[in-house]
Write a protein that binds this DNA or RNA. Sequence first.
RNA 1: GCGAUUUUAGCUCAGUCGGUUAGAGCGCCUGUUUGUGGAGCAGGAGGUCACGGGUUCGAAUCCCGCAAGUCGCCCCA
Length: 437
Amino acid sequence: MAYKRPPDTYDVLPYPNVKEPWLHTAKWRFVEGVFREVCGRYGYKEIRTPILEQTDLFKRTAGETTDVVSKEMFTFEDRGGRSMTMKPEGTAPVVRACIENGIFATHPTPKLYYIGQHFRYERGQKGRYRQHQQLGVEVFGADNPAIDAEVILLAMSFYREVGVKDQVLRINSLGIPESRVKYREALRNFVRPFLSEMSEEGQGRFEANPLRMLDTKSPKELELLSAAPRLIDFLDAESAEHFGALQGYLNSAGVPYEIDHRLVRGFDYYTRTTFEIAGASLGAQNALGGGGRYDGLVEACGGPKIPGIGFGLGMERCLISLEAMGVQLSIQNEETVQVFLITLGDASLVEAPAVKLLSQLREAGISADKSYRSRKFPQQIKEADEAGASYTLILGDSEIERGVVQLRNQKTKEQTEINLSEIVGEIKKISILSKNF
RNA sequence: GCGAUUUUAGCUCAGUCGGUUAGAGCGCCUGUUUGUGGAGCAGGAGGUCACGGGUUCGAAUCCCGCAAGUCGCCCCA
């Protein structure tokens, strides 16, 4: 085998895959379709940004000390000597695009969604790849906690409609930068007496990014941190009110959630609300999606002082989770053909009319196909079934002589003879009348 | 970056204690006397046993190395 795909990437094929059934194009289209539909219903519009950005955009927004920026970016120098990075996350590019296109001047509260490929240079494992399809939304210009609730409700709607049953919503509030400075100091003071008992990783975070110490999975560190001060006790009055209002909205909408005091997310730009949605059956990587508020991000990118909130979810984890739960997706198989043309007899006589008929059907909006392997009748019938055809058209020497074609219902095997000049109209009629055509 | 584990036909996998020419199912191809279900029957193609060394009379099998896949650590989606 000469070439292999890059490490920790995957191919999505239009054919069933025994080992990895989620790598099937039809399933991807289904999930994307649900996401688009839900976003549209919530009033969100699609934005597409380049796959590359200036490296600095991510360094400045996500934070130099974050894992993503410090060790997981696909960064290279282009031919003009500029440092470029394949986007590791979706929010900063959207912010950049909105500022650059003057969106905020004409749209007070843009509500946007995107579907795109994101890249992180990590070692793969279940549900984690170097190239990953992320679906996300961003809202700008609203600090009303009702919009926090809307974004969360949109995410929950999506998961419910796509078929994920057991999603768990966890929320937290990080407050504003000023209150976080106080909290950071309190957390340091709490940890300092037993700093030497923390892992190397934890000790590193003590200096660089104390909040991330909370993110540990080590049972020992969880024990040590169990009595640590909590973020919500340090919130400024407004943030506390904001967080309380959000909870009220979630309650009245009937959305169950839990407050997770150690939910701090991976990027430095988050303020106030953060949330994560987790699912079962994903192995170690059980976060289906997450997001939060980023009130200072637009300004930090050189735009106006405008608040924002968003979330992103992973296509791979969504599909793997659905598969693990045994959910049957209502997939429209776009490869299914409506009419299959069977040709018989002398090819020099039959092929030309067949090519013409096939083209006429397709021009008329009927999906149609034929065998290109000059096979015998039974084999062509089989091929028609494999193509999923509801009807076959039979065109042989004797039909050509009489200017007709046989229309055969594949289910009932009923067969009627129809004039070649009328067949396209006839099939068009059937396709309109018949639901399961 | 680290650890565990796997690698034999297009796919899913057997392969015993190291012993003849490397096996199955599915898929693919051909035929089944040539225009109506071929999902039946008969046959066929397809392998550098990931790759490189070593031990041995003899290696898919044992040893060393290396590559890729998978899962996990860290972190995230």
